[in-house]
Design a protein around this nucleic acid. Sequence first.
DNA 1: TCCTAATTTGGAATTATTCTAAGTATTGAC
DNA 2: GTCAATACTTAGAATAATTCCAAATTAGGA
Lengths: 146, 146
Amino acid sequence: MSLVEKNKMNGDLNKRLTTGGLRLTPQRQQVYDVLIQKRDHPTAEEVFIRAKQAMPDISMATVYNCLDALVQCGLVRQVQLERGATRFCPNMEEHCHYYCDECGTVFDVALTGNSAVVPRPKGFKIDHYEIAVHGLCASCAAKRKK
Amino acid sequence: MSLVEKNKMNGDLNKRLTTGGLRLTPQRQQVYDVLIQKRDHPTAEEVFIRAKQAMPDISMATVYNCLDALVQCGLVRQVQLERGATRFCPNMEEHCHYYCDECGTVFDVALTGNSAVVPRPKGFKIDHYEIAVHGLCASCAAKRKK
DNA sequence: TCCTAATTTGGAATTATTCTAAGTATTGAC
DNA sequence: GTCAATACTTAGAATAATTCCAAATTAGGA
């Protein structure tokens, strides 16, 4: 990412956070950077490990706090694909998650115009929705056939 | 449920399980009954508590084993809506889950013909998908307005 | 009936997440 | 810039959810 882009991103980050009474701290920036740099839907644990490389004193509690803050202000989404650890995804476009039940890989697929319209039950105020598609990724499906 | 229906259900249960080398045991039947009797998307813990009423000696490990067996043979689906406990749902029709972020209520809405078509990325072999809609239920949304 | 494999059990172990209390940093008012 | 108020970070303890384990039991097929 260019410096210009990065500065713009930080401005956005700051604006988003402060609107909700939250603050932009070096740790939150770092956690967000980690998510942006490698969009492989890491768990909190993985974010922690990656963030420590640049910021060795960051703690697990802070990673959770940062992730929660980012989720709260709409910069990151929380993704629950299996029993166990929650994953985090900085892609805020409408998309669904494809999860390989064999190897655990996750990837995003954008939702285009006519796909995936969820019903709008009366009275329910929709905030957002998550679509998780389970199955076998191309590579694991190929292996199975052998 | 009538006795006839129940017997039919058990036959189905048995067939489904045995096809995958699994067995129909009293515990699995009990766990399945619990799910059918109150379809409020209970957690494993809640299933455990309810199952104990009819079968006091059932253990938590068995509840997990039963739930996993039922999920594996396609009679129950696992639902991940938030951080924390997994929920279980015996409704195998295509539907999505509406989750109230305020009070935690969950309800199903059937997917009708034109709604929710997920993309089919090349090579990925889809097994099933889960749609979780987050927001405020009618009652909580109304309270908020006040 | 006998054998084999699947299942159940209680408890220990592990993993994921939350809580707590004390110190530190940031913000806005003056 | 100083000060008070509030938000944030930290390490570690505590809790919650799930998995693992080894021994005893049960179910299904020959």
